[in-house]
Amino acid sequence: MMKTQRDIASFVLRFTQELWQDPQGEPRVEWRGHIRHVQDDDEFRFTELTEVMNFIQQSLMKLTMDCMPKEDKMYQDKALRESFKLWEKFATSYTEVMTEAVQQTVKQSEVFQKQVTEVVEQVMKPWWLVGWPTPTSEPRPAPTAAADQAQLMQTLVTLQAQIAALTNKVDKLEAALATAPDDIQPMQ
């Protein structure tokens, strides 16, 4: 098949680092990110790596679907599965690269390595739910029509990003409560 402009997905990723000291004089860092899918002009802001991985995954899935509008449903299903297999491979090797980098720079930071692995696990999660190919042999639901699957996938990815954002907020609230004066106690 001839390569065309619409088969290309480019992303412009911007990270802004915010660095400050907390009241105890400890350094605090926050990453605020922005990603833009060049060809579609879709954009998204994030603070969690999981969210940006989801955004890329969603865009690549759409690219696969857009490139075969006239194919029959079975063919579309197969192509989508192939596309997800590739994504899975990429995401897995990405973890390895990240872990290796972390091992080299912060040898004792097991917590961070765990976080990186968790991010990829979270990215993979929706596939197990909707039945895309995974390395495990867990039973999966029967695939629906490709377009329905794409829509379902998109909804799950959006939900997942919202859950990640909510979790983030809850964590921050808990942290704030932990450092609050004694007369304010977290709810049990």
Partner: peptide
């Protein structure tokens, strides 16, 4: 709205 974060301490 965009990040779910507070403004910076500054």
């Amino acid at each position: 709205e965009e990040f779910g974060v507070e403004p910076l301490p500054e």
